[in-house]
């Protein structure tokens, strides 16, 4: 721990106000999403707590009928917008983290394998990556979603939607990781410490996991951060297009999709607050990723 606090990375973090602020914002958002049941004033998915009379209450103003007042107003069904955002962010973040984790594990493994083993293994993996890279990830995600929708029975579709989203976004994103890890692996593989490990008699798997992997992780960390922002945006986009999280489990994107309908009739808050939350989330993660990339790039020092 003392080593970490003394490290150049932490020093660079401490002296970058942008990094500190975005870390705090991101941490606050993540924490309030994780503890949504404790933070949120109401549970928007508990029909008992809803009162249709509270519908379309403007923020910070008492409702005409019930006199209740809501921090960020309510939507058409009288749900507290603030609470729906907290619960929605939970889904957005869960999908984002899970998708990036999935893509990362898959990408690191395939990248290490193709970089270290080479030959046909590499050709097949990297050609597949090239083909997939030709197609934008959002399109790949939509296709996977579409196909998955086609093969799952109608009654399970809503339940499966979140997992299909994770699969779709994760599968569309592994290429980034695999390419970077493969590139870094090729560099590391030619270094003599790998030759030394081979001379000791270590097996290829041990060399890949124990020797090479720790040395290729710093670019992975940067990509993972940026991918997290991209995954959150991709999830929001898919949900906005109606091919993502179902209305029964609304993510931020679903909330924006719902809010868009009320924008022209003047109930701006139903759209604005989820949109602003999404922007803050993506922006703070992006800023962190941006800082991390500069801080970990030794050539910029």
């Amino acid at each position: 721990m003392r080593r970490f606090l003394d490290s150049d990375l932490f020093y660079s973090f401490r002296t970058s106000p942008v990094a500190v602020v975005s870390f705090i914002v991101a941490a606050l958002l993540v924490l309030s999403a994780v503890f949504a049941p404790l933070v949120a004033p109401t549970n928007p998915f508990d029909p008992a707590s809803l009162n249709l009379m509270n519908g379309f209450t403007a923020p910070m103003a008492p409702n005409d009928f019930t006199g209740e007042s809501f921090f960020m107003g309510t939507d058409d069904q009288g749900r507290d917008v603030f609470s729906t955002i907290l619960y929605g962010m939970r889904i957005s973040l869960f999908v984002g983290f899970a998708a990036v984790l999935f893509a990362m594990v898959l990408g690191i493994f395939l990248g290490l394998l193709s970089g270290y083993v080479g030959g046909w293994t590499e050709t097949i993996i990297m050609r597949a990556a090239d083909v997939q890279l030709t197609f934008p990830s959002i399109l790949v995600a939509m296709l996977i979603f579409g196909v998955a929708k086609g093969i799952t029975p109608v009654e399970y579709r809503d339940q499966m939607a979140i997992w299909v989203l994770i699969l779709a976004i994760g599968l569309s994103d592994w290429v980034q990781f695999a390419r970077v890890v493969r590139g870094a692996t090729l560099v590391e593989k030619s270094k003599d410490y790998v030759a030394a490990a081979r001379l000791i008699g270590r097996s290829p798997l041990t060399i890949m996991l124990r020797h090479i992997m720790p040395n290729v992780l710093s670019p992975v960390l940067v990509i993972a951060t940026i991918s997290l922002a991209l995954a959150i945006i991709a999830e929001a986009t898919l949900s906005f297009l109606g091919v993502g999280a179902p209305p029964t489990q609304p993510s931020l994107g679903t909330l924006i999709r719902i809010g868009q309908g009320f924008l022209f009739s003047g109930e701006w808050w139903i759209l604005l607050f989820p949109a602003a939350t999404l922007l803050m989330l993506a922006l703070s993660v992006n800023l962190l990723g941006d800082w991390l990339r500069d801080a970990l790039n030794p050539r910029l020092k």
Binding site: D192, Y193, A196, L199, I200, N215
Partner: peptide
């Protein structure tokens, strides 16, 4: 056989900056 042989030989490399794993 390779394993037994490699135990009897060792190697010193040219570049001291790349011949030690920086994360160990």
């Amino acid at each position: 056989g390779v394993s037994a042989y490699r135990r009897q030989i060792q190697m010193i490399f040219q570049d001291p900056y790349s011949s030690l794993n920086p994360r160990m």
